[in-house]
């Protein structure tokens, strides 16, 4: 277990710096105009930030009202014991509900949780893993099937939503196992 933890730690520490170095060196070797290509992609980053802004603001406002009015505390008191028994803080419930429906909406909730609880808290880590390990099922189904005119999607929605549920369960399990609940 100690070896596993050390290996996991090394993956966590090295993955991003290695990608930076590897991608840029590979680009040079393949005679890519690295700096200009980087700038082209960077412009996409600005577009992306602009595109997610309305999502984030709309969700922040709705969540702000839901929390500051006392409604969240009420919901937490109602569902708290049941959720607590399976290791899910009530604050994370809205993220689980919205994750399959709206990527921008889920992102807004994740950012809100990171700010409220801190990125290195149990809630912050659980939200990060939930955000990173599942995707927006309804959005992907509509874009991909829509692009080729498919209307009979067979078992894809059922499997997609069950996989999301499995992803939530596994996120709770692995965050508790690898990072603890502190």
């Amino acid at each position: 277990m100690a070896v596993l933890t050390a290996a996991m730690d090394a993956v966590a520490r090295w993955s991003i710096p290695l990608i930076f170095a590897l991608v840029l060196l590979w680009g040079l070797r393949k005679k890519v105009d690295v700096y200009n290509v980087f700038l082209e992609g960077a412009r996409d980053g600005l577009d992306l930030a602009g595109r997610i802004l309305p999502y984030v603001v709309s969700i922040f406002a709705a969540l702000g009202i839901f929390r500051d009015s006392g409604a969240l505390a009420l919901l937490a008191r109602l569902l708290g014991p049941a959720l607590h028994a399976v290791g899910v803080p009530a604050d994370v419930l809205p993220l689980m509900l919205i994750r399959p429906l709206s990527g921008g909406g889920a992102l807004g909730i994740t950012l809100d949780l990171l700010r409220q609880h801190g990125p290195d808290s149990y809630v912050g880590r659980l939200a990060s893993v939930l955000q990173g390990s599942t995707d927006t099922t309804f959005y992907i189904l509509s874009v991909y099937f829509g692009a080729v005119g498919i209307r009979k999607i067979r078992h894809s929605l059922v499997v997609g939503l069950l996989a999301d549920l499995m992803g939530f369960v596994l996120a709770v399990v692995f965050v508790r196992l690898l990072l603890g609940t502190a």
Partner: peptide, 17 residues
């Protein structure tokens, strides 16, 4: 958001996904 170790969630994310 000011995490002291932003990448610490990578192993748990890989395992869950």
């Amino acid at each position: 958001a000011g995490s002291h170790d932003p990448a610490q969630i990578v192993p748990a994310t890989i395992a869950a996904s």
